[in-house]
Simulated assay, not measured.
Amino acid sequence: MTWTLPEPMLAAAVNSPDLPRGWAAEPKWDGFRANLSVDSGRVVLRSRRGTDMTLAFPEVVAGAAQLPDGTALDGELVVWEAGRLTFKRLQGRLRLSGTGAGRLAQEWPGHFVAFDLLRLAGTNTMPWPYRRRRAALEQLFTARRLTVPWALCPSTTDPDTVREWLSWTAVGLEGVVFKRLEDPYRPAIRGWLKYKVRESTEAIVGAVTGSPTAPRSLLLGRYDTDGRLQYIGRTVTLSQAVGGTFTDLLNPAGSGHPWTGWTFSAGWGTNETLNVTLVQPELVVEVHIDVARDSAGRWRHPARLHRARPDVSAGDVALLGS
Results as ranks from 00 to 15, higher is better:
residue 170 A to E: 12
residue 200 S to D: 13
residue 92 G to V: 02
residue 13 A to G: 09
residue 312 V to F: 08
residue 189 I to C: 12
residue 295 S to Y: 11
residue 248 D to P: 08
residue 26 E to S: 06
residue 227 G to W: 14
residue 43 V to C: 07
residue 175 G to F: 00
residue 298 R to D: 10
residue 184 P to S: 06
residue 19 L to A: 02
residue 227 G to K: 07
residue 64 A to C: 12
residue 52 D to I: 05
residue 132 R to Q: 15
residue 154 P to M: 02
residue 321 G to Y: 09
residue 88 K to S: 15
residue 20 P to K: 04
residue 308 A to H: 01
residue 157 T to P: 01
residue 130 Y to Q: 09
residue 71 T to W: 03
residue 289 I to Y: 00
residue 281 P to Y: 07
residue 104 L to A: 13
residue 82 A to C: 10
residue 302 P to K: 02
residue 266 A to R: 05
residue 167 S to C: 13
residue 270 T to C: 03
residue 2 T to L: 10
residue 157 T to Q: 14
residue 113 V to M: 08
residue 171 V to Q: 14
residue 37 S to L: 11
residue 232 I to A: 03
residue 267 G to N: 09
residue 300 R to P: 11
residue 226 D to I: 00
residue 222 R to V: 11
residue 166 L to W: 02
residue 115 F to Q: 11
residue 304 R to H: 13
residue 292 A to M: 11
residue 315 G to E: 11
residue 261 G to H: 05
residue 138 E to H: 05
residue 265 S to K: 05
residue 247 T to Y: 09
residue 153 C to W: 02
residue 194 K to I: 04
residue 214 A to I: 08
residue 181 L to N: 06
residue 281 P to W: 06
residue 283 L to V: 10
residue 268 W to Y: 14
residue 184 P to Q: 06
residue 236 V to M: 02
residue 164 E to C: 07
residue 228 R to P: 04
residue 7 E to L: 15
residue 263 T to I: 05
residue 171 V to S: 11
residue 272 E to W: 02
residue 204 I to L: 09
residue 155 S to T: 14
residue 314 A to H: 14
residue 25 A to L: 04
residue 4 T to W: 02
residue 257 H to W: 01
residue 282 E to S: 12
residue 301 H to D: 15
residue 184 P to M: 01
residue 306 H to K: 12
residue 278 L to K: 05
residue 201 T to G: 07
residue 89 R to T: 01
residue 210 G to T: 06
residue 78 V to T: 13
residue 192 W to C: 09
residue 66 Q to E: 14
residue 178 F to I: 03
residue 90 L to R: 00
residue 251 N to Y: 10
residue 51 T to Y: 07
residue 171 V to L: 12
residue 227 G to A: 11
residue 93 R to G: 10
residue 67 L to D: 13
residue 317 V to Y: 00
residue 235 T to Y: 00
residue 28 K to M: 07
residue 257 H to Y: 03
residue 99 T to P: 11
residue 178 F to A: 08
residue 148 V to I: 00
residue 287 V to M: 01
residue 303 A to P: 11
residue 12 A to C: 00
residue 305 L to I: 04
residue 135 A to Q: 15
residue 77 L to T: 10
residue 277 T to V: 14
residue 118 L to D: 08
residue 9 M to I: 03
residue 48 R to K: 12
residue 302 P to S: 00
residue 75 G to D: 10
residue 128 W to A: 07
residue 302 P to M: 03
residue 281 P to D: 04
residue 242 V to I: 13
residue 40 S to A: 15
residue 183 D to Q: 12
residue 95 R to W: 03
residue 105 A to S: 13
residue 92 G to E: 14
residue 41 G to C: 05
residue 79 V to P: 02
residue 151 A to N: 13
residue 236 V to W: 04
residue 22 G to N: 08
residue 142 T to N: 05
residue 205 V to A: 04
residue 19 L to I: 11
residue 33 R to F: 09
residue 205 V to Q: 02
residue 273 T to H: 01
residue 282 E to K: 07
residue 225 T to A: 12
residue 36 L to V: 10
residue 237 T to H: 08
residue 169 T to P: 06
residue 131 R to Q: 15
residue 61 V to M: 02
residue 36 L to Y: 03
residue 193 L to V: 01
residue 135 A to D: 13
residue 147 T to Q: 14
residue 184 P to E: 09
residue 264 F to I: 13
residue 118 L to F: 07
residue 220 L to M: 08
residue 51 T to A: 14
residue 226 D to P: 01
residue 317 V to L: 04
residue 275 N to E: 15
